[in-house]
């Protein structure tokens, strides 16, 4: 775990009730347009529900910098600052099926 890199993420994770759909942070609800909320959808795009927040955060940082190859995610990651990304990652991490 490299959470020490991500104080905002740790803060977001510490917030109670982050898993409630009504508390979705800005931007989070758009992700499921491509990243299926349902387990049954056949797609090459990975699901985000229940994924470790640190994995989402690192992926978004690397998409944004260009360090990780992407088709469309580099263009999308650039629309979110670090606290926004961290909050979205924490919220998905707190979701479960």
């Amino acid at each position: 775990m490299r959470c020490w890199l991500l104080p905002a993420l740790a803060c977001a994770l510490a917030q109670p009730g982050a898993a409630h759909a009504a508390d979705a942070p800005p931007g989070a609800s758009s992700c499921s347009g491509c990243h299926a909320a349902s387990k049954t959808v056949e797609t090459a795009v990975p699901r985000l529900v229940g994924r470790k927040p640190v994995e989402i955060v690192m992926a978004m940082r690397e998409f944004k910098s260009g360090a990780r190859p992407a088709t469309v995610m580099g263009r999308i990651a650039k629309g979110f600052n670090d606290p926004e990304t961290d909050a979205i990652a924490a919220w998905f991490g707190a979701q479960s099926d």
């Binding site: 909320a37 797609t43 795009v45």
Partner: peptide, 20 residues
């Protein structure tokens, strides 16, 4: 390969957005 990957993601997108 990049164009083909976006075509694959397009198909996945259609299945996802309709399920969503």
């Amino acid at each position: 390969a990049f164009r083909a990957q976006e075509a694959v993601y397009a198909e996945g997108w259609f299945r996802t957005i309709t399920a969503e």
